[in-house]
Every structure is written in C-alpha cells, then in structure tokens.
C-alpha cells in the first residue's frame, strides 16, 4: 500500500482518478494549482486506488495524503 502525497501546498484543481481505478506509476492522479502553475502529481506506484482523500477545490499542504494505492 502506498500513499500519494502532495509535493507542495496548493489547491486541488483536477482529480483524474476515482476509487477502484487501476493506475500506472507514471499516471497523474490529481493536478494541483499553486503559484499559478499546474502541478501534476503522479501515482509513482502501479496499483488500484483504494482511497481518494481529496476533492476538487480542496486545499492541501505539502505532504498531505491525496490517495492511497494498493
């Protein structure tokens, strides 16, 4: 089980996955918006999305868990 974490503080702009989806390690799971930039957050592991912890427009801090992948 692996946690996908926010690499920097920002708003969740787009959520690209749903719980139960299978994802590839290079696949982006969410795109944050911070410093006016789109910040893609990749899954970094291949597996199934067990839990999605954010929704669009949420604010996340660096290190916050975005999703759990099994």
């Amino acid at each position: 089980m692996a946690e996908v974490k926010a690499s920097m503080a920002g708003n969740v702009w787009k959520v690209m996955i749903s719980e139960g989806d299978s994802v590839d390690s290079s696949q982006d799971v969410v795109i944050l918006e911070s410093m006016k930039m789109e910040i893609p957050i990749a899954a970094e592991v291949t597996g199934t999305v067990k839990e999605l912890k954010v929704k669009e427009e949420d604010f996340v801090n660096e290190g916050d868990v975005i999703a759990i992948i099994e």
């Binding site: 690499s7 920097m8 911070s34 410093m35 006016k36 930039m37 789109e38 910040i39 893609p40």
Partner: peptide
Amino acid sequence: QPRQKGGV
C-alpha cells in the same frame, strides 16, 4: 522542471 512543483 515544470513537471515538478511547477518549476518553482
């Protein structure tokens, strides 16, 4: 690297 932290 714009792919990481927006290149900030």
